[in-house]
Design a protein around this nucleic acid. Structure first.
Lengths: 335, 335
DNA sequence: CCCCCGAAAGTTACCGGTAACACCGGACAG
DNA sequence: CTGTCCGGTGTTACCGGTAACTTTCGGGGG
């Protein structure tokens, strides 16, 4: 007599119905070639007559394998991550892994909490946004002996697999594009200011310094970026530095918002003010004029992560490496 | 001697270290008030010395409770869902539930697959986008005897909890707003054309018919919507129906894309062409002019789902009900 | 005709927790 | 002084699968 009459159909029920033991049913599901064809058919029909649904917890506990992987992303509302994710899910999904998604809200403390949660779910790998983690998170990861992917930015000291692009270099390159067009008074507008945003800004600053120009025209906020914020911050910047010739925005949302504000003010872009964003989201090609931006290889990042992670999961040895997938500057019409 | 030397720290290890049995350690974690304070402290320090991470599968298997809930959303890149999700995660997270996210890609077949997957994970509730499901999915849900939330649109025959808004009514109301402004040749532009998009379009059609006007100026595509697509489709529509006075777009992305195309063509919005979107995303307030839109109560939907689901999880009886959270028309400046 | 082999199915133990109940000793009421 | 209650801890069995090894049986080679 069961302690809790869960009502749920188990392997045992199927086994009784068919007249075999449960291990045979288990085999029929996982290694069909080890079960005779006739029996397999009877098992299959019993399974869908009774409506059997496997118990993932029991399987994971017994086998030590969860067939799942955790993917942490900073924010669900940021379109940047959804493309990376698509590549990861397709690649890992085909290999039989379930991808569990968590979002950190750009906080490494929350990341730490999620790492703990997902390790207790027994995930077989973790994919983390960024290369900065709390000490405790690093300890957890080290003890777990599980493949780890750090993505988006690059580091010289990866925990394991690192796939991304050089955000600092990208910031410099876009700034150089402004310089090449003859602009000199180039500002930087940033929101959220997570580590990657800081790297981009540092790239802008470095390029300006190298060109012997002032890097003072800079406005940032810790608030999450949005279209509206882009417009509001552009207004502040123009008030403070009316001589601005161009503004490099830390991401496409801000750039688009800034562009809309220029339209409201009847400020011609790029003649009176040049603008650029970062990431190469769909909107940059749709606005009038199209926005200059740094096109990041998001889909490629996702695919690469899936490929390299699968290799590790199938036994390739740990050998900390960084893979730089680069970026491309697109001039659009706003620069 | 363990079969697999997993190396992982278990309750047993903690128990040995402290000199008690594992059930006491388990209690110290789940029901601390049942364990004496002194012992509790020793257990806690052993836990973080040894770096114990609970095994969720084992706990779920033994207790029959997974403390997790599945949330299926159509698309991760659609900002509409991220706000709903935030409300759900906050509400359920506080109550100790982990929210597992899956995306269906707007396909009820994929939804069916995910329902199966998450039921095997033992989720204690499912939150589904929409009210249409495959027959097999309905059977799975019925057998699972788990609370189910259907959201976004409304139905007269909810499986269990239904929270959303009347998409058809909203489509009609926005069309009426066009009519109130004196427009007569009002077109509809739609993409993806999932069930909700169809309902909105049907609302437009109904309102036009009721006003004795033609509902022929309609262009739709099964492709996913995007800013670019909005622009391209606007171009097609203007070519086909040069007399258009206004266009109701099935969502904000399309409307924004259409607006950008108007800017490129130096078509004044709203004087030469009125535009409206659907959902009330951030971008509608940022463009020049701001876009008319149907503001949907996304955050409220998320909060309501969390509240009502918690009630059910804490024992409230099943009583199929629909909750209509309404909508609001915002005229913006494009209408 | 015997032996060995391999395919097909079964036995046993175990994964790492938790439920339910038993146990123990001291405080306190009668 | 004894019975009862209760806080604190232990015992036992079990959740629903899977690993590893064993058994059974039919057929082909020597």
């Amino acid at each position: 007599m069961p302690r809790r009459s869960s009502g749920r159909v188990t392997l045992q029920h199927i086994a009784e119905r068919v007249g075999v033991t449960k291990i045979t049913v288990s085999r029929a599901l996982r290694e069909p070639h080890l079960v005779s064809a006739a029996l397999r058919l009877r098992i299959e029909s019993a399974i869908d007559e009774l409506g059997y649904i496997p118990n993932h917890s029991a399987g994971a506990l017994a086998s030590g394998r969860s067939h799942s992987v955790a993917l942490l992303i900073p924010s669900l509302s940021n379109a940047v991550f959804s493309e990376i994710q698509r590549g990861i899910e397709e690649g890992l999904g085909q290999a039989g892994y379930q991808v569990l998604i968590g979002h950190t809200g750009y906080s490494i403390l929350e990341e730490e909490r999620l790492i703990d949660t997902y390790l207790s779910y027994g995930v077989e790998a973790l994919i983390l946004p960024g290369t900065r983690h709390t000490d405790h998170a690093r300890r957890l990861l080290a003890r777990a002996r599980v493949p780890v992917v750090e993505t988006l930015e690059l580091t010289e000291t990866p925990l394991d697999i690192n796939v991304g692009l050089d955000q600092h270099e990208a910031g410099k390159a876009m700034t150089q594009a402004f310089l090449d067009r003859g602009h000199r008074k180039i500002g930087f507008l940033g929101a959220r200011m997570d580590y990657r945003a800081q790297l981009r800004m540092a790239g802008w600053e470095a390029a300006m310094r190298q060109a012997g120009l002032s890097a003072e025209r800079c406005l940032t906020t810790p608030h999450p970026s949005s279209y509206r914020l882009g417009g509001e911050m552009l207004a502040s910047m123009l008030e403070r530095w009316p001589d601005l010739e161009g503004i490099f925005c830390g991401n496409d949302d801000l750039a688009a918002g800034a562009l809309f504000e220029c339209q409201r003010r009847r400020l011609n872009v790029p003649d009176q003010l040049a603008l650029a964003g970062f990431n190469g989201l769909d909107i940059t090609e749709a606005t009038a004029p199209p926005l200059a931006t740094v096109v990041t290889p998001r889909r490629g990042i996702g695919d690469t992560i899936a490929r390299r992670l699968l290799a590790r999961l199938q036994g390739a040895p740990l050998q900390s490496t960084s893979e730089n997938l680069g970026f491309r500057i697109r001039r659009g019409g706003s620069l």
